[in-house]
Nucleic acid binder design. Structure first.
Length: 427
DNA sequence: AACACGGGGCG
DNA sequence: CGCCCAGTGTT
């Protein structure tokens, strides 16, 4: 046999393997597909919302969010016309909050540019904020049955194993390669089912850690399984570890008119957790010579927090360490040491002859001196700098009106639970 | 190409 | 409890 003959034969085998794959996968999907809320209709708006939510988030987590979201914003227009804070509140706990802001921006695009109908051509779908190559393909194929690839992590895992592709899936060109392959595999007129089948297989059978090969509809011709290397695929470079950040947080209990309330602060309009609400917190000074992760001595922490509060224009006195909490991002780990503080009637006498603090977005801290910066006050006495730093006194009931990252949601609920317990005991 | 951007599940 | 999972936007 000549070299050319071998290549021809390999080419034929590959074509056979592809046809086999598509046929059996589709067959399997008809019988195994899960009943999911967004699969009950072929509503492009539902498909779109679900696909955005499903980015970086698993199906079980998304389902309740999707149902609430559709109930609250049933149409593109209702989403476009809603206050942004309502959309954020609906997204609370899902993470990656820019998805929520992008989706509303895109809803306005759809309303104004496409008469409220999700467009079905590639250019238009791709131009929507928050819609990249994967989501565009998912919308076009699932909602409109157009033969576009929709390559996510599941799909790359399945394809890398079945075709034994050892390219690093963290690299950009690999995704493009996978898209070409995925497009070839779509059976005529079956884009919607086939693309969902591919992802369903990745989610239910061809899982990252211990794939259920024995129940796989295409195991017979899976190159990785035949080679015994399925668990070492796909190849992916590791992300670098998150950097640790120690922070001092203030749980400030109101007095007088604010009795029973707690002070919260709004984050800046861009960057990490943009526009979400939180307990005020600042970087802890580095423990000089102290053991890693060790708490600052109580007195030093109280002092430092007192200073930070004062610099932020908040009149409160740190009293006592309450608890520690962790918040893990993909790139940062916050260790929050939370201190109970009590509201004071007025700013205390200056600790030092410094003016108002300036928010330094780069370092995420309030520092520096700018006595010209005014303190804006609302009628209820709360302050509101332009870019974050707005503060409010809230009770448990008011939590429904503000969107919090999970760690603060938990801290606030714990605190209010404790207060209720205390009130009961005193009776 | 590298980094920013949350949260949850699994073994 | 350490490890893993992942699209889009920005730079």
């Amino acid at each position: 046999m000549t070299q050319q003959d071998i290549q021809v034969q390999d080419g034929q085998e590959l074509r056979e393997a592809k046809k086999y794959f598509s046929y059996h996968l589709l067959e399997w999907y008809q019988g195994q597909k899960r009943d999911l809320p967004w699969r009950r209709h072929r509503n492009p708006y539902y498909i779109w919302i679900s696909e955005i939510m499903l980015q970086q988030t698993r199906v079980d987590t998304v389902i309740p969010y999707f149902n609430r979201f559709i109930e609250r914003f049933p149409t593109v227009e209702s989403l476009a016309d809603a206050p942004e804070e309502d959309v954020l509140k609906c997204w609370e706990g899902l993470g990656y909050y820019s998805r929520a802001r992008n989706i509303q921006h895109a809803a306005k695009q759809v309303k104004e540019l496409y008469g409220g109908q999700v467009p079905n051509d590639r250019e238009a779908v791709f131009s929507l904020k928050g819609v990249g190559p994967y989501t565009a393909g998912a919308i076009l194929s699932i909602a409109f049955n157009r033969p576009e690839p929709a390559v996510d992590g599941n799909v790359m895992r399945v394809l890398s194993r079945y075709f034994l592709i050892e390219d690093d899936i963290a690299k950009g060109p690999t995704r493009v390669k996978m898209e070409r392959l995925a497009a070839e595999l779509i059976p005529e007129g079956e884009a919607a089912s086939f693309n969902q089948a591919l992802m369903e297989l990745g989610a239910l059978v061809c899982t990252p850690k211990s794939p259920r090969c024995l129940t796989c509809p295409v195991m017979e011709h899976c190159a990785a399984r035949l080679a015994g290397c399925e668990t070492s695929l796909p190849v992916k470079t590791k992300a670098k570890p998150p950097r640790p950040e120690e922070r001092l947080a203030a749980l400030i209990e109101g007095r007088g008119a604010h009795a029973g309330q707690v002070l919260i602060r709004q984050r800046p309009q861009s960057g990490l957790l943009a526009r979400m609400w939180e307990l005020p917190h600042w970087p802890a000074p580095h423990g000089e010579g102290g053991a890693k992760g060790a708490r600052l001595p109580e007195a030093a922490a109280l002092d430092r927090l007192r200073r930070s509060l004062w610099e932020a224009g908040i009149s409160a006195r740190p009293e006592k360490h309450w608890m520690a909490a962790e918040h893990i991002f993909s790139h940062i780990v916050w260790t929050l040491q939370v201190y109970r503080c009590s509201e004071e009637d007025a700013l205390p006498l200056p600790i030092a002859a410094e003016g108002r603090a300036v928010y330094n977005a780069d370092a995420d801290l309030f520092s520096g001196i700018d006595s010209s910066m005014p303190i804006e006050r609302f009628e209820d006495g709360t302050a509101s700098p332009e870019d974050g730093g707005a503060v409010r006194w809230i009770s448990r009931e008011d939590m429904a009106n503000y969107a919090f990252p999970n760690v603060f949601l938990k801290l606030l609920n714990l605190y209010f639970d404790e207060q209720e317990e205390r009130a009961k005991l005193e009776q």
